[in-house]
Design a protein around this nucleic acid. Structure first.
Lengths: 130, 130
DNA sequence: GAAGATTATGATAACCGTTTTCATTTTGGC
DNA sequence: GCCAAAATGAAAACGGTTATCATAATCTTC
């Protein structure tokens, strides 16, 4: 095959390990940690390249953190509604998705914009951290 | 007073000149352009500092562009719903704001999260550019 | 209005996440 | 095994942002 990386599996596994957005460097560190023995982890460059490609292929979602880092998360659903905890970083899907979608579709129709995409990000403190 | 800049007015005027998000460097260039004579524009550092402070004070909204730039816009309403044209960069408020707010508030209540803030960004091609 | 303290400014360097470069290694086809 | 094509690693380059620090402007108090 043409466009694969030896490390796709490990990168996706690292992202799946916990339900939150991770920076590329976090992913790199996670992979390094999960290798006990003498195995060498992929280089940082490779992790950057792999995440970049996975994002382009739609396998992972990306958002920009407030300080300009790009964060990645395994893409579970085509919708892009996330609820982030500012303290622990936990990310979950936003409930009421259908209701939201209804309103958002209505917005799309009434604006005349085409090729519309939206991203909705919530940030707060989750019950566990409060 | 303690926390003012000589250039607040010019920075805000530059942001008001068109209804779109602008990078700090764009703002800097706009100010420089709007000065015909021998007047020296503020330095880039000062524009960075001024925008940073205005954002902290809630005078301007900020978003992160896809390639990691921080973009600023005059804050017209406390809500953060924007509709961006990918071609011309025009930004407008999203209609159906009240409906949206209702759903979003419902989301807040049912998640148990506290200190919730959200940002909703639409991107598409506006009728003029289509 | 002058003297001294405080704050803002400008030029430049430092920072840091990301991307590019390129030599080397690995992979795939024959 | 041999050759072409693709992936990898290490380090340099990049670009937006922030920190540093000397200088200039502003404010306070007399």
């Amino acid at each position: 095959m043409g466009a694969g990386s030896r490390y796709d599996g490990e990168v996706l596994a690292a992202l799946r390990r916990e339900d939150r957005f991770r920076s590329c460097q976090e992913v790199h560190a996670l992979i390094a940690d999960s290798r006990g023995g003498p195995q060498r982890p992929p280089s940082l460059s490779t992790v950057y390249r792999t995440l970049h490609r996975l994002a382009r292929e739609g396998e992972v979602d990306t958002i920009q953190s407030e300080d300009g880092e790009r964060l990645y998360r395994r893409c579970e659903t085509p919708s892009h509604h996330h609820l982030l905890c500012r303290v622990c970083g936990h990310a979950q899907e936003v409930p009421h998705a259908r209701e939201l979608r209804t309103v958002l579709t209505r917005v799309e129709r009434s604006t005349g914009f085409t090729g519309l995409a939206y991203s909705l990000e919530f940030a707060g403190v989750c019950p566990d951290c409060a």
